[in-house]
Computed example of a mutant assay.
Amino acid sequence: MSNTSYIFVAGASRGVGQEIAKFLTAQDIKVKALLRTEVAAKDLESLGIKPVLGDALKVDDVEKAILGDEPIQAVITTLGGLPTDGVKPDFIGNKNLIDAAVKAKVQRFILVTSIGCGDSVGALPPQALETLKPVLIEKEKAEQYLINSGLNYTIIRPGGLKSEPATGNGILTTNTQIVGSIHRADVAELVCRCLNSVNANNQVLSALDKNMIYPGLPEYVEFNLG
């Protein structure tokens, strides 16, 4: 990890994105975050994060943030909307980030989506699938766009997210048939570990707490980040 370059985080105002930004700064890694509001910017600035005001749905804002003076080593995005949102950032916002990352020649792009995307669609109970479908469709489009971008990517699909402190029991697996829950802080730690993992290059991985996997599911093999 170079001391002169930044990790760029989109979605850092709340949830997993904020946990990622906090985790990185705690390790003295320089973080730049794209934020829509002054309030969010001030909150993160107090944690030592460099805020950039802008909207991921606007190409100019994203390019200004990623193609600025400071070199960006990697991009991590947790951008996502609610099923009720009119314009969801899950595809458009992430597409803008991917395009800018290609121009900036970043070394790694980590996209956090959700179990239920792509070939993990069968893991979700039908009711959950029905509720989340509008968002999952957009997230899946972002996954495909990233895979086809030529960037070195890692796609992380967490299970059901909880806000309690980290348990340290988060695991990654390539098994697309398992589902369960995981704490946001544990997802953040797994995502940050992927930054320096060659094994994670061009992988699509599910993230779960090994003690919160739903019973009666197939065996899984824990993915080794090395």
Results as ranks from 00 to 15, higher is better:
2 S>G: 14
3 N>L: 13
5 S>G: 10
7 I>D: 05
13 S>F: 06
14 R>V: 00
14 R>K: 14
15 G>S: 07
16 V>S: 12
20 I>R: 10
20 I>L: 10
22 K>P: 13
23 F>S: 15
24 L>A: 10
25 T>Q: 05
25 T>D: 01
27 Q>T: 02
28 D>I: 01
29 I>N: 00
30 K>N: 10
31 V>F: 11
33 A>M: 13
34 L>N: 06
36 R>N: 12
37 T>V: 03
39 V>Q: 14
41 A>R: 00
44 L>Q: 06
44 L>F: 09
45 E>G: 06
45 E>T: 02
45 E>M: 03
49 I>R: 06
51 P>T: 01
52 V>A: 13
53 L>Q: 12
55 D>Q: 02
58 K>V: 15
60 D>T: 09
60 D>Y: 03
61 D>R: 01
62 V>S: 04
64 K>Q: 10
65 A>M: 05
65 A>P: 13
65 A>H: 08
66 I>P: 09
66 I>H: 08
67 L>Q: 11
68 G>H: 14
68 G>I: 04
69 D>Y: 07
72 I>W: 04
73 Q>Y: 11
75 V>F: 08
76 I>C: 05
78 T>R: 08
79 L>E: 13
81 G>K: 02
89 P>F: 06
90 D>K: 07
92 I>C: 04
94 N>K: 07
94 N>S: 15
95 K>V: 02
96 N>M: 07
98 I>K: 04
102 V>I: 14
102 V>Q: 13
106 V>G: 01
107 Q>V: 01
109 F>H: 04
114 S>P: 13
118 G>P: 15
120 S>W: 02
120 S>A: 11
121 V>R: 15
121 V>E: 14
123 A>S: 13
123 A>C: 14
125 P>M: 11
125 P>G: 05
127 Q>I: 10
129 L>K: 15
131 T>V: 15
131 T>Q: 11
134 P>Y: 01
135 V>S: 13
136 L>T: 02
137 I>K: 07
138 E>V: 06
139 K>H: 01
139 K>P: 00
142 A>L: 05
148 N>D: 15
150 G>E: 09
152 N>D: 15
154 T>Q: 04
158 P>H: 02
159 G>D: 03
160 G>A: 07
160 G>D: 02
164 E>S: 08
165 P>Y: 00
166 A>N: 05
170 G>T: 05
172 L>H: 08
173 T>F: 02
175 N>D: 15
178 I>M: 01
181 S>T: 07
182 I>S: 07
185 A>T: 01
187 V>S: 02
188 A>T: 03
189 E>H: 09
191 V>H: 04
191 V>S: 09
194 C>D: 12
195 L>R: 10
201 N>M: 05
205 L>R: 15
206 S>I: 11
206 S>R: 10
209 D>W: 08
209 D>C: 08
212 M>L: 12
212 M>P: 09
214 Y>C: 00
222 E>A: 11
222 E>S: 05
225 L>R: 06
225 L>H: 08
